[in-house]
Design a protein around this nucleic acid. Structure first.
Lengths: 353, 353
DNA sequence: TTGAAAGCGCTAACAT
DNA sequence: ATGTTAGCGCTTTCAA
């Protein structure tokens, strides 16, 4: 390169982007002016604007936001941690959060915890190292949440969604899991059912335990004894469901209805019922695509993940805008969507046996 | 604060995070040492490590990655743009990409284009301004793609998924849409069908047009005339499907089978068939949850979004690791999953009328 | 309206 | 093994 002949070879610097300095040089102005143009400040002459834009175009300049973030301290980014971005519920929440983030011209960093507290911790700390402006978190059960306190103290805003923190004092958006489950089970009881099976996720999960509690409350209120034989709590994958359902059906006093604790569970129960060639009344928690396409349509207790995301982001941005009022918990109500499967009466089920 | 009495008030600097300088001061070492400890370099004494870690703990220090990124030029981040993160297909792709990103200790920025070229452009340029190491892109139809060339020239690696670029010379992962569709339609023809309806997405979309082409190829090969009356191409939402399906069914020579161009379409067609209280043989493109729970199970031409994400990331990381060989296009084969709906013979359908 | 210059927090080269 | 320092690319005073 510098062959010693005193000539300075101005390399094209492949694979290295032009900086404002480069643009300034080409445009024949100072970097300050370039910065003003790039950020659309008002006090720049038309001439300068034109010259700078031409240089930008020519060099393919794109502002380096790392430098900008370092300087200004604002990253215009939000971190979202959910259980699984591919889960129908969380993917809808994801999209909803994205819309709000876009509205503020920020970017969204996403991650799936896969229900693993360590993975969650790692991702959250990574987000914090990137200095996200705020965090939307579905924290998996069973891990320590103390490490979040340091982030909170350092001024990182966060809002919990889908389940509340154990100790932390942060904004939270949840749904009325217990009340929703109770409504669903009451609905079945209203159609004469007294033997109602319950298929849910692991009961150490907040949402599952709340829904089981709602199930029990409805039974109790109706004076129906709780029978642990009718509860199965690892229903999130398909295979484990067939056997316990079969056992229940083969018992002396088989169920005539089933309450399914979430969308995956509903699907698994429907499949298992198919296997056992039986039909029971069924009400599921969570709506899902195709719930109205199977016959009969599946009656569900629906959540609104879109609203959840919107509300969470609204709360978060209020904090980012300086609100320091006490933290809030917003509890969204569920909605019973009647489609047929939940309106199969006890008599009808028994008659078909 | 500085009350003029010569005393320097060392404020607690609330809402402003500790820096390496702070940590160095508290630990009684230099910033270089702090940096070495934070980054796990080898040549540091046990003493220093302990002192630094204690200070980090006490101050709640977390490295500012904006500064690190500015300095090193590496952002350890990948940008993913899909049509909609809440779509069952793309959400699975999203998760798959996330796993690969996690494996490299990077973070993932995600965005939905919502099929809007302008929104796509905005998000991609934002990602570029953040200096993502690489981009995984499903570019919406109908927009200019030239702006990507500047990014490519600047050294940003990218891989297209789900549909190929029009002009750009970049790595691409797609599925054999045409061949898959042909296989699906041939399957129906094999069961005696000669009047096969086709419900798809807008034909200006790459995947839809390829699938329609596959549909036509299968017909042609079997000597079945193509009838535009049997094709409906805006089947992505529910309502528009009912009417054209009804019209086809009421015609002189109604279809006995239907090929559905994607998962949403399949669901809509199933719903519409329910409305019209008819059953036809059906094969859909894309697998979906519940495809095996409805009766009969839905026979589908399945893609593998997980594999797509893995392969895309493998290609991307090879580029990031310095591979400069010519760009590749990987075409994944589809898989026909037989579940019953596609094996309803023409005779059976006619007999039921 | 504009250019010059300080400095955001970090890494890495250099000196010790 | 460790402290010091230059500088990454930007924004933002400050002075002109």
């Amino acid at each position: 390169m510098d062959a010693g002949d005193g000539l300075r070879v101005v390399a094209e610097r492949p694979n290295s982007r032009a900086t404002m300095k480069d643009v300034a040089r080409v445009a024949g102005v100072g970097v300050g002016t370039v910065s003003r143009v790039v950020n659309g400040k008002s006090n720049v002459s038309e001439e300068s604007i034109a010259a700078v834009n031409a240089a930008i175009e020519r060099l393919g300049f794109r502002r380096n936001d790392s430098a900008r973030m370092l300087k200004t301290g604002a990253t215009a980014s939000i971190g979202l941690l959910v259980e699984d971005v591919a889960d129908p519920f969380f993917s809808l929440l994801n999209r909803s959060v994205e819309e709000e983030v876009l509205r503020r011209d920020s970017v969204l960093l996403t991650a799936s915890s896969d229900k693993d507290p360590n993975r969650a911790r790692k991702m959250i700390l990574t987000f914090c190292a990137r200095r996200v402006d705020g965090l939307v978190i579905t924290l998996p059960e069973g891990g320590d949440e103390e490490y979040l306190r340091a982030e909170l103290d350092a001024g990182t805003s966060m809002v919990f969604v889908d389940r509340p923190p154990r100790e932390l004092d942060v904004d939270t958006v949840i749904v009325d899991n217990r009340g929703g489950a109770r409504t669903g089970v009451e609905h079945l009881i209203g159609y004469g059912h007294r033997r109602i099976a319950c298929f849910t996720d692991r009961p150490d999960l907040y949402t599952a335990s709340e829904r089981i509690a709602g199930y029990r409350e409805a039974l109790e209120e109706a004076g129906i004894p709780f029978d642990p034989e009718l509860v199965f709590s690892s229903a999130t994958t398909r295979e484990p469901v067939d056997e316990p359902l079969g056992r229940m059906l083969a018992s002396d006093d088989p169920p005539t209805a089933v309450f399914a604790g979430n969308n995956r569970t509903s699907i698994n129960v429907i499949g298992a019922l198919r296997i056992h060639n039986t039909s029971l009344a069924i009400v599921g928690f969570d709506d899902f695509e195709l719930a109205d396409v199977v016959v009969p349509g599946i009656t569900v207790v629906a959540q609104d993940p879109k609203a959840m995301g919107q509300i969470a982001m609204r709360m978060l941005y209020k904090r980012l805008d300086g609100d320091v009022s006490p933290s809030q918990t917003v509890t969204l109500n569920t909605r019973l969507i009647v489609r047929g499967s939940g309106e199969l009466s006890r008599d009808a089920v028994l008659a078909a046996r």
